[in-house]
């Protein structure tokens, strides 16, 4: 039994005859890490995330979560925040909390209400009455209220203001258990790099670099943000 939480080998996803979104990708991720999945637009971040979640099937190669290919069981251990909302607009926040509690055994209503309260979100409000940023917060709260082994957050902070961003990062730090791993994709590198253990640079569907934040700072003498700009300079 491998000690990796997530393993991909030769993972490939091709759309039609032309687009290879993920190309012969190899990746090993251990438990207890916060990892930034970073890459320019169209580099394959979201496709990779969908493959890990079993929303897409690989054209070739494999991806394993805790040693198993994505299936119903793996969905119990992965908490996934998609880049687009799938929540029903007509539902109240409290109804969404109940919905998640029904759906996931590892969901904590107490934690959800605590976070909603700190962010000043009324649980009686209908989702359709909330702003785009607030909807994103609700969705992130629902995902982070699960006690999962692997959290995969696709662009979790893009739509929220800087002050709420800090709160959300603290929420992430406070609420994941030490053995859980968080993978988050984002363009807002400088906002999040202090909370990351590792970064994965992805380019044209392959891993360009997988290292620790401290190694980049020690070896390059610059932040992950500046290094990213250098590596992916147009």
């Amino acid at each position: 039994m491998s000690s990796y939480l997530l393993e991909a080998s030769g993972l490939t996803k091709q759309f039609g005859n032309e687009t290879i979104a993920v190309n012969q990708l190899n990746l090993e991720v251990g438990p207890g890490k916060i990892i930034g999945l970073l890459g320019p637009n169209g580099s394959g971040k979201t496709t990779l995330i969908k493959l890990i979640n079993g929303l897409l099937t690989p054209s070739s190669g494999s991806v394993l979560v805790k040693g198993h290919a994505p299936d119903i069981e793996s969905k119990k251990t992965i908490a996934y925040l998609p880049e687009r909302t799938y929540l029903q607009n007509h539902m109240k926040v409290s109804e969404l909390v109940d919905f998640f509690a029904d759906f996931y055994e590892d969901f904590s209503k107490e934690r959800a209400y605590m976070m909603l309260h700190s962010l000043d979100i009324k649980s009686t409000a209908k989702l359709s009455t909330l702003s785009k940023g607030t909807k994103e917060k609700v969705q992130l709260i629902l995902v982070m209220s699960r006690d999962a082994d692997l959290y995969i957050l696709d662009e979790p902070i893009a739509g929220v203001d800087p002050a709420a961003r800090d709160y959300i990062l603290k929420t992430i730090l406070n609420n994941y258990n030490e053995n859980a791993t968080i993978i988050l994709s984002t363009h807002l590198i400088s906002d999040i790099e202090n909370i990351l253990d590792e970064v994965i640079f992805i380019k044209n569907g392959s891993i360009l670099l997988h290292t620790t934040v401290e190694d980049i700072r020690e070896q390059q003498g610059k932040s992950v943000d500046s290094y990213f700009r250098e590596v992916f300079a147009c």
Binding site: G32, K33, I34, D166, L169, K170, L173, N174, E178, N194, I195, L196, D197, V213, E214
Partner: peptide
Amino acid sequence: LACAACVNPNT
């Protein structure tokens, strides 16, 4: 402290 500093707990 990690939370106060907004850094990774492993760091």
